[in-house]
Design a binder for these strands. Structure first.
Length: 193
DNA sequence: AAGGGGATTGCCT
DNA sequence: GGCAATCCCCTTA
């Protein structure tokens, strides 16, 4: 397993979002390790993207999106849920990839405890809010450098063929036609095929 | 200082 | 399939 570095994230957001499909998100905290394969992402840009938090320029909330790549950006929405993003593009350029769904790999029992025992394995992290709940991610996990542990993304030594499907983003009211969502085609852990 | 909307989820019908 | 839950942040006054 090789940890993705800042050079990986410091590129065009659309490319990073597509290439994150199939990579492994790992969080090792409090003596418990949880991990999952990234099966769904969305790209968010800056001034050219009306659906992005960064569309109207720098604010206290979104300023991390303008900073160095490979840093986490966690925000709270709808009064209930956290969403996890990873900052992209060169330092000074706004961009981030929203992680929308994971296929759980390690720490299944921990995720089930956090999400509620009634949930199937496929429902543990098949949505941006579910994913953060399963991993125990809150705003405390924002602005963390993810290019080293204990919170990082890695790629397996040997990666099989990854069929990345492109689609429109979900749950936004602006720029709905843009093909900025990416998912692992046919994977049952994707929120919407 | 206040109001409105939001990159969602789960429960109820 | 519809809607409430519930809070933070941006916008405007």
């Amino acid at each position: 397993m090789k940890i993705l570095d800042r050079a990986f994230f410091g590129r065009n957001t659309q490319i990073v979002a597509a290439e994150l499909i199939g990579k492994i998100l790992v969080l090792n905290q409090g003596g418990s390790l949880v991990s999952g394969k990234i099966v769904e992402t969305e790209a968010y840009f800056g001034a050219d993207d009306p659906a992005s938090h960064a569309f109207r320029g720098v604010t206290p909330r979104n300023r991390v999106m303008f900073g160095p790549a490979g840093v986490s950006y966690v925000y709270f929405t709808y009064g209930n849920h956290h969403c996890l993003n990873i900052v992209t593009e060169a330092d000074g350029v706004a961009g981030a990839v929203l992680l929308r769904a994971l296929e759980p790999l390690s720490g299944l029992s921990i995720m089930k405890k956090r999400r509620g025992a009634k949930h199937q394995t496929t429902a543990l992290a098949n949505g941006p809010g579910k994913l953060t709940q399963a991993f125990g991610i809150t705003r405390d996990h924002s602005e963390i450098d993810m290019t080293r542990g204990p919170f990082f993304v890695a790629e397996k030594a040997e990666e099989g063929f990854v069929h990345v499907q492109t689609a429109k983003r979900i749950g936004i009211s602006a720029a709905q036609h843009l093909p900025y969502r990416f998912y692992l085609r046919g994977n049952p852990f994707v929120s919407v095929q």
